[in-house]
Design a protein around this nucleic acid. Sequence first.
DNA 1: TAATATTTTGCAACACTGTTGCGCTCTTAA
DNA 2: TTAAGAGCGCAACAGTGTTGCAAAATATTA
Lengths: 139, 139
Amino acid sequence: MANMNHEGEQKFEKKNIRPTSMRKLIYRILSEKDQAMSLYEIEQQFDQVERSTIFRTLRVFQDNCLIHLIYDGTGAVKYALCDDDCSCGINDLHIHFLCSSCGNNYCLKELPVPYMDLPEGYTFENANFVIRGICPDCQ
Amino acid sequence: MANMNHEGEQKFEKKNIRPTSMRKLIYRILSEKDQAMSLYEIEQQFDQVERSTIFRTLRVFQDNCLIHLIYDGTGAVKYALCDDDCSCGINDLHIHFLCSSCGNNYCLKELPVPYMDLPEGYTFENANFVIRGICPDCQ
DNA sequence: TAATATTTTGCAACACTGTTGCGCTCTTAA
DNA sequence: TTAAGAGCGCAACAGTGTTGCAAAATATTA
Ligand SMILES: [Mn+2]
Ligand SMILES: [Mn+2]
Ligand SMILES: [Zn+2]
Ligand SMILES: [Zn+2]
């Protein structure tokens, strides 16, 4: 992935995110690991960084649909890069898989969150569907 | 619900939970509010109690399938009473609904978590499916 | 019943995650 | 070159969850 930085910058431009060095670094970390990461896991990839800087960077990414958030019940929010064509809408929602063994959280982008016929009076806005089990690597 | 305590004690006996006074109180609080509650919300129902006692009580309840846990992304785990016939297995999984407006978390027990055909190598153990939107009360 | 063992509770302290204020630094625009 | 704005690092803090330990309550045994 020699052109990773370049790719990242293209995305930044597309989503109107100013490409600072921290942002490029964090983008690269997220893209190199193709699984959802927690803030702490991202922090571990640096020798020395500030939680707060990462936190605010992730917020910028989130606000501009570069990443999506997953609540998998581990206590820490997970972050994963959006697809190129993602608009962070209902149609982009997909299932996430948390491995009970290794703790990895996989974006199953080929599995969209199924449509649910809600009871009268409930309006759908968003969904968080996490399946827990054993991943291929841990079988 | 005059026989609430009695009901609770029956459940305790059925699930082999010793019916201490704290447990009866916490059971009653959960049954009076028919929505999932956080530890903090339960704590608020008392004049003075110990987080840790509630925490450990909830753990006993969870270990004995009296309650189930919901991770709705609010930061705090939610707890809700199980149905009488619940065995905390795959068939008992249901969708939860978090209202963006009032913050209430509803157990939609009539909506089971749908079966998902996972990619090769992934094994299903558990699921957490939370839909976010506006509830009937807030429409 | 009295003594002993077990369980539960209250208190305190702590760990982890997320969040914000503030001033310095760096980038951008005039 | 200077001024304005945005981003960053540092520190402090809030919210949630968790544990050790001793006192209290309860169950068990003598
Ligand atoms: Mn994803
Ligand atoms: Mn429920
Ligand atoms: Zn795994
Ligand atoms: Zn509502």
